[in-house]
Computed example of a mutant assay.
Amino acid sequence: MADFTSTLALSAAGMRVQAQRLRHVSENIANADTPGYHRKTATFEEVIEAGLHTGMVGLGPVNLDRKELTRIYDPGHPLADEGGYYDGSNVDLVVEIADAREAQRSYEANLRMFDQARQMSSALLDLLRR
């Protein structure tokens, strides 16, 4: 039964991390037109509890993408310099949509694993009751 519990914990951790990743992707998409906005990237780290490797994954520090900001020509913009340019964001919507789709698929895979472990533990309990 402990294996089922650890499987449920592993898949729940995976779902939690992918949900947080989707939150960062959503923030990037929402700020794609914000001048000076740097894209947020998240890294994954292994969770270690009491010095032991748990096999679970957690979200590491959120970093800002260091890619150069897009220069936009708009002399009427309040942030434009004397040449008429201002710094846009470095968010690429195609990359963000691909990241969102990958996070969604990973979330769904963890959800299926969670549901399968739940069904197996329920079936085991039914067998033990007989």
Score class of each variant (00 low, 15 high):
M15L: 06
P75D: 15
G76F: 09
E82I: 07
Q18E: 02
R101W: 09
A103F: 04
D99W: 03
D87T: 08
R23W: 09
L52C: 08
I97S: 11
D81I: 09
I97C: 11
E27W: 03
T43R: 08
G58V: 01
V17F: 01
L79A: 14
V95K: 14
R21T: 13
R21N: 13
G58T: 02
A32L: 04
D81T: 09
L79D: 15
R66G: 10
H38F: 07
A12I: 00
V95Y: 14
Q20T: 06
A103E: 02
R71N: 06
V25A: 07
D74K: 09
A103V: 06
A13K: 05
I29P: 04
D87A: 08
N90F: 05
L59H: 09
H38Q: 11
P78A: 15
G60E: 04
E27V: 03
N28Q: 04
K40M: 03
S106K: 02
K40H: 01
V62L: 07
R21I: 09
V47G: 00
A80P: 06
G55P: 04
G84I: 03
M56Q: 00
G88W: 11
R39K: 13
P35M: 08
S89T: 04
T43D: 09
L52K: 15
N63Q: 10
K40L: 04
A100T: 02
A80N: 06
N31E: 00
V25H: 06
R39H: 14
P78M: 12
L64N: 14
P78N: 11
E68C: 06
G88H: 08
V47D: 01
G76V: 10
Y86C: 06
V91E: 12
V95S: 15
G14P: 02
A12C: 00
